[in-house]
């Protein structure tokens, strides 16, 4: 299951993780090796086997919709790298 450098760059783009050329090569090697190892799963017969998302089965969990205290605005904004008044400041998403 050898990945190409192009594929590694594509995955990094999807994940929005910047990578250097050196990292591309290292990840290519390591991820290929790991995926190669996981090929063993293909040997398991899973016809008619349902998928498990959560191991402990739970029905819908609901609670009354009651108003209760939550974080203050100052608390919620305290860790924001860029703040403007009562807002989190972000970079332009749309460029014209």
């Amino acid at each position: 299951m050898a990945l190409s450098r192009e594929e590694v760059r594509h995955i990094a783009l999807l994940a929005r993780v910047g990578v250097t050329e050196e990292e591309v090569e290292r990840f290519r090697e390591q991820l290929s090796n790991i995926l190669e190892n996981f090929q063993a799963l293909q040997k398991v017969d899973t016809r008619d086997v349902p998928a498990t998302g959560h191991a402990i089965e739970m029905k819908n969990v609901i609670r009354p919709d009651e108003i209760a205290a939550s974080l203050s605005q100052d608390d919620a904004l305290a860790n924001a790298p860029r703040r403007e008044g009562e807002f989190v400041r972000v970079r332009a998403v749309l460029e014209f």
Partner: peptide, 29 residues
């Protein structure tokens, strides 16, 4: 980063069935 990329790959178009869904089925077993 390695794990984020591994997970992104396992969930990406064309590989979801072979990796993620397969793993969830073996999880059942």
């Amino acid at each position: 980063k390695r794990r984020i990329m591994l997970g992104t790959y396992a969930l990406s178009a064309g590989y979801y069935d072979a990796y993620y869904l397969k793993a969830q089925k073996v999880r059942t077993l």
